[in-house]
Amino acid sequence: MTKSVKSNVNYIRSLIVSSIYHAGSGHPGGCLSCVDIVDYLYRYHMSYSFLDCDNVSRDRFIMSKGHCVPTIYAVFCDMEYISLSELKTLRKINSRLQGHSHRVAFPQVEVSTGSLAQGFSFAIGESLGLKLQGYSNNVYAMIGDGELQEGQIWEGAMFAAHHNLGNLCTIVDYNKMQSDDLNENIIKLEPLQNKWESFGWNVFNIDGHNPNQIREVFSAAMSKENQKPSVVIAHTIKGKGVSYMESIPSWHGSVKLTEEDCRKALKDLECTDNEIEVLMSA
C-alpha cells in the first residue's frame, strides 16, 4: 500500500494496532508509547543494517520491555524489511514474530525477552563486550517504568556505572502505568531522576513524543567524551494516538482487540478508508 503523507509514526502505530488485532492478543498501550523513539533510533540515529545484523561493529537496540516488540516489527515493516502480510503473523504458529522477541527465531530483534530486566543486563554485557574489544559502537536499551521494580535493573545500574559504560544509553519509557494500575499505586518510582543520578548515570528528561527533543537528546547523551552511562527518561503517554486507550492502564494488555476497537483506533490514527481495509484484511 502507498504510504500517505501523514507522520510516519502514526502509520507505524496503525501497523502495531492491526498486528495486535490479527494476533488476537498483545500489549498495545506500551507499544504505542515508545514508537517515536524506536522509529527515530532505527531510521535516523543508529549505525545499523538489517541485512548485516551480525556485524559486531553495529549499534544495537535492545527492547528490554519485550512485550513491546511489536513496535520493532512495525518499524521493520514500515522500513520494508518485513512485509505487511508477515506482520499479520505476529504471535501465530511458525512465525518468527514471536509474542516476546526471540533472537534465535529472528536475529534482528537482538535479544530474547519475556522476563523483565534481562534485556537491560544483556545490553550492559554488549556494551562491556564492545568496549573491551575496542569497538566504538553504542548500545540503546529501552526499559519500561514498571520494569524498574525488578531488582536486576538496579544490579545492572550499579554495574554499568562501575564499569564506566559511556557507550550505553538506556531509555525509560515513562508512561507512568504498568499492567494493573499507575506505577504510583503499585510501587512508586519517584524520585526517578535522583535514583539514576545517585547510581552514577547521566540523566536526561524529554517528552518522548517530541521529535526535536528526541533528536537532540541522543546526540547529547552519546557524546564521545562520555565516561558514564546515560539514561533518557522519556515522558510518554500510554496508548498514544488512540483516544480510548490513552492513559488507561487496562490497555497495557495482554488484551484482545475487537474489530470495532481496531477500526476505531485506525481512524484515530488518521488512516484512510482504503488503508483501514488493507490493515483489517486477513
Binding site: 543486563s121 554485557g125 554488549e126 562491556l128 563486550g129 573491551l132 545492572g156
Partner: peptide, 9 residues
C-alpha cells in the same frame, strides 16, 4: 544476563 550480552559480541 551480562555474560549473555558479552557472548553476543
Amino acid at each position: 544476563s551480562v555474560a549473555a550480552g558479552m557472548a553476543e559480541t
